[in-house]
Design a protein around this nucleic acid. Structure first.
Lengths: 231, 231
DNA sequence: AAGTTAGTACGTACGGTGTAAGCCTGTCAA
DNA sequence: TTGACAGGCTTACACCGTACGTACTAACTT
């Protein structure tokens, strides 16, 4: 069974926590988080499932480690410039990371406790705000207000990427039915489709929407910070 | 095995989609979403797991139905008053609902597509904004900015409810270690603990934080709306 | 050189999951 | 009375995470 035809040559590169985590991230990127099982991951590494338990404590620990790998990919903060620019740049870097690993946001919100790596990320982000003149109190509020946005994702309630991927006629009929049930939302859909009729790809510009929401928050926080400083 | 000692009397009240969904919600409220399996739910209803499949298409459909039940519990919108008050009241009602069903937010964000009930909820919310003078475009942006907040929950990255539930001495030691690793975040924790030294319960006031973030968003949107109207 | 020990991979097994397929029975219309 | 049928039950399957015991390997000790 084992491939040790020539033990000196066909030596299997040994497992390690790092190799396990990387393989898990790579598998999830490629086939989605649902495809990630201990057996499947072992198979991916040419190893039995139980061997993985020598390097991760269990599936929970595996997921924790994967989150750390992903969060570790986010650019470190830059200390120069006003706080808004630094926060903005870092959050947008985080967003790019999350887009590379679409499963990550769901896994992150599913963790019970933030890992040291995530805590470190948060702390450095907090540092930017404090150096930018935030009171501890406002910093605290600000973190709550930003929510998961600090990690580069916003919570979308519906997946508008593939909302209406039918033919034009079909789409018109469906739209009419939709309009009867949800007149207001249909107005949005029609507007978006009209605006981007020339642009390739249906649906709205997620990147622009993310930045809009982010800037709305940052502006609001800056206003509060300035008011606090004036007092 | 079956309890049909007297078929005319011991008749089991028949299943129905509604009864299945209600039992699922009730079980999840009581023992958490992880306790919800088809077998366990059947057991709860005095029925075999496979019998449930006569009323729900599968577990996914079950979860969809449960979301509908929960969203259906949110108060309908009030048409009176300014848009901000109406939106605020509805979102806070949604939040109360989500607090009653702690599993719901995770399930909602896990759904692939919004169900008709959720769509209806969104649509009525959109209606409030449109009647409040929003352009379709700004409405669209606003929904993205609010994110999951429209459904009454914000995405918390860490669970600060039971963060530090150890003894005082232990806590002091841990805090010191924490301070070395995460100086900025520790500042927040200490401030919160100091502020609420007299108040029962550790951690911050989640309700206040939610409202802070919500109002920050609503104020920002109102500012944009007014600017748009002036143009 | 021989013996010991620690680490790591393997194999098996257990109890859980969702659900496909077929059976059995009570209810009701013709 | 008969037939259809809806809605329950039973069995079975493929998968999951992981506890446990075994066996091989490499390094260190004597």
């Amino acid at each position: 069974m084992t491939a040790r035809t020539d033990p000196a040559v066909e030596r299997r590169t040994p497992l390690s926590r790092d190799r396990v985590l990387r393989a898990a991230v790579e598998l999830s990127d490629r086939e989605g988080i649902d495809a990630l099982s201990m057996r499947r991951l072992g198979q991916e590494l040419g190893v039995e499932a139980m061997s993985l338990y020598n390097h991760v404590a269990g599936k929970e620990d595996l997921l924790d480690g994967m989150v750390d790998v992903v969060v570790g990919e986010v650019d470190p903060p830059s200390d120069a410039g006003p706080w808004q620019a630094a926060v903005r740049a870092r959050i947008l870097s985080a967003r790019r990371t999350m887009l590379r690993h679409p499963w990550a946001s769901a896994v992150i919100v599913g963790r019970r406790q933030a890992s040291p790596v995530v805590m470190g990320y948060m702390d450095s982000m907090a540092g930017i705000l404090l150096r930018g003149g935030f009171s501890v109190d406002l910093l605290h509020h600000g973190f709550h207000a930003l929510g998961s946005r600090v990690l580069g994702f916003s919570q979308e309630l519906f997946d508008d990427s593939s909302d209406l991927a039918a033919g034009d006629e079909m789409q018109a009929v469906m739209l009419q039915q939709l309009a009867a049930a949800y007149p207001n939302i249909t107005a949005i859909v029609q507007q978006v489709q009209h605006d981007e009729a020339s642009v390739v790809g249906s649906g709205c510009d997620d990147q622009a929407e993310f930045e809009f929401a982010l800037d709305l928050q940052l502006d609001g926080l800056e206003r509060l910070r300035a008011a606090e400083a004036a007092r």
